[in-house]
Amino acid sequence: MITKKTSITKFQLYFFLIQSQIGIGLLSLPNVVQSTAKGDGWISTIVAGVIVQATLLIYWFLFKQFPNQNYAQITKIIFGKYIGKLLNLIIYFYFILTGSLALILFINCINLWLLPLTPLWVLSLVIILASIYLTISELKVIARFFVIASFLLVLLIFLSFFTYSLPKELQFILPIGNSGVKNIIMGSNKSLISMLGFEGVLVIFPFIFDKEKGVLKTVSFANLSVTALYSYFLFLCLISFSPNQLKQVREPVLYLFKALSFKMLDRIDLIFLSSWIVPMTTSIIAYLYLSSKSFSRKEKSFKSIVMLNGIIIFVISILPIDEKMVGQLSKYVTYLSYVVVFLIPVILLALSLVFKTLKRSGNH
């Protein structure tokens, strides 16, 4: 039974989606997009935002048909018990693998920049224990934490203003559209993967308080905010680094801050990264919650499932994975995202509308 006590407000939903989407991907996106879209990478991110908005519209229409069911329940209603269970298993693996990939990238970044002598398993254990501790709480508690964590985005934007004192070259992005439509679309695909997290609404929709109105506006505003933030930092990096530099620099946003120096403060990049640990952790918390909620139906078993999923994500993160294997895991997550985030919801909506039409014609 979903009550006001266990549900979240639309205000909290906004920050839940933002914190699910923004994390480690923001730091490396300019480098990732550079290989295809080059100077038009910021356009690719806007295109990705438009695709996300179209997907959110599909989710909204789907939940108009099933207002009190979540993703896993809808698959069973439409496809039946057995196919529904198979699809839910795919959805579960997607959430687990995405959470594991986020954790691997997170600990690698911390190990490279902040704590090079600390074993990766120690970093992973600390992060996953903190994530489990928060995830076993109610969704309302998680959402409240995400609201507080979002204030660190203000720090990120504030610090970015100081980078305008560094040399900038608009020539790097000119002429606009020079990369071609094909490369911009390919770049938008890479931006889309970095912006994943919005699919969380598929699981938490039934827990939104007063969801009859305003939900589409809230998720759309969250998508607009994330798209604007990603596009802004992509644009900032594109005019700050030459194309060759962007290819070589893995986390351009951190290198942007590294160039800043003040009389009383130095290594702004390390100060920023220390605070950015929180938004990177929220992505893992979100995927740990989503994987557990898509698997567990009963509140009593939820805590046990969270702990089990936390152990699975931890074990995957400490496997001896080199950079090539991380790239391979990223490909698997990308392919799974096409199925779980885009394909299945479209099929569910199409079939639900067909069944509704057949039911109406049968009544006549």
Score class of each variant (00 low, 15 high):
Lys140Ile: 02
Leu216Asp: 12
Thr75Ser: 15
Val340Pro: 00
Ser261Asn: 14
Lys303Val: 09
His364Ala: 04
Glu299Cys: 00
Leu117Asn: 13
Trp121Ala: 09
Gly99Gln: 12
Met280Asn: 08
Glu299Ala: 03
Lys293Tyr: 06
Glu169His: 03
Leu152Glu: 02
Ala350His: 10
Asn31Val: 10
Leu254Asp: 10
Ile285Thr: 01
Lys182Trp: 05
Ser137Met: 10
Thr163Asn: 10
Leu349His: 10
Ser296His: 00
Ser7Asp: 04
Ile110Thr: 09
Tyr255Val: 10
Ile239Leu: 14
Leu196Trp: 04
Val154Gly: 00
Leu89Lys: 04
Ile2Phe: 02
Asn108Asp: 06
Ile43Arg: 09
Leu89Phe: 14
Ser337Phe: 12
Val201Gln: 09
Lys298Trp: 00
Met307Glu: 00
Asn189Trp: 12
Lys64His: 15
Thr282Cys: 09
Ile104Asn: 06
Ser150Met: 04
Gln65Gly: 08
Trp121Gln: 10
Leu196Met: 09
Phe207Met: 05
Asn111Arg: 10
Lys4Leu: 03
Ser131Phe: 02
Thr334Val: 06
Leu117Pro: 06
Ser294Asn: 13
Lys5Gln: 03
Val32Cys: 04
Phe205Glu: 13
Ser317Leu: 08
Thr9Tyr: 09
Lys303Arg: 04
Leu62Arg: 04
Leu103Thr: 08
Ile185Lys: 01
Leu216Val: 05
Arg250Asp: 05
Tyr59Ala: 13
Lys76Asn: 14
Leu290Lys: 02
Thr218His: 07
Val203Tyr: 04
Cys109Trp: 02
Tyr14Gln: 07
Leu229Lys: 08
Phe145Ser: 00
Lys76Trp: 04
Phe61Asn: 15
Ser275Tyr: 12
Leu349Cys: 08
Ser124His: 13
Leu308Ala: 13
Ala286Trp: 00
Thr135Glu: 01
Ser283Gln: 03
Met307Tyr: 07
Tyr332Asp: 11
Ile318His: 10
Phe161Pro: 04
Phe205Met: 13
Leu202Tyr: 14
Leu353Tyr: 02
Phe302Gln: 10
Thr334Lys: 11
Ile193Leu: 11
Leu308Thr: 05
Lys38Asp: 11
Ile284Gln: 01
Phe79His: 15
Ser35Glu: 12
Phe66Met: 06
Ile96Phe: 04
Leu26Trp: 02
Lys190Thr: 06
Gln53Met: 05
Pro345Leu: 14
Leu236Gln: 15
Gly214Leu: 13
Leu114His: 07
Phe63Gln: 13
Val253Gly: 05
Ser291Gly: 14
Trp121His: 09
Leu26Asn: 07
Leu238Phe: 02
Trp60Asp: 11
Gly200Ala: 10
Ser296Trp: 00
Gln248Val: 02
Val215Asn: 14
Phe63Asn: 05
Ser337Ala: 15
Ser220Ile: 01
Tyr59Trp: 15
Ser231Gly: 14
Ile321Lys: 11
Phe207Gln: 08
Tyr335Phe: 11
Phe314Ala: 06
Leu174Asn: 06
Ala102His: 05
Phe79Cys: 12
Thr75Lys: 15
Pro320Leu: 05
Ile204Cys: 11
Leu62Gly: 05
Gln21Asn: 09
Phe209Cys: 04
Phe66Ala: 08
Tyr335Ser: 05
Ala37Cys: 15
Trp60Phe: 14
Ser283Glu: 01
Glu323Asn: 06
Asn189Ser: 15
Ile91His: 07
Lys211Leu: 09
Asn183Thr: 02
Leu139Ile: 10
Phe205Pro: 03
Asp40Val: 06
Phe198Val: 03
Val333Tyr: 04
Ser274Ala: 00
Leu236Lys: 13
Asp322Gln: 08
Asp269Gly: 14
Asn309Met: 01
Leu103Phe: 11
Asp40Lys: 03
Val249Ala: 03
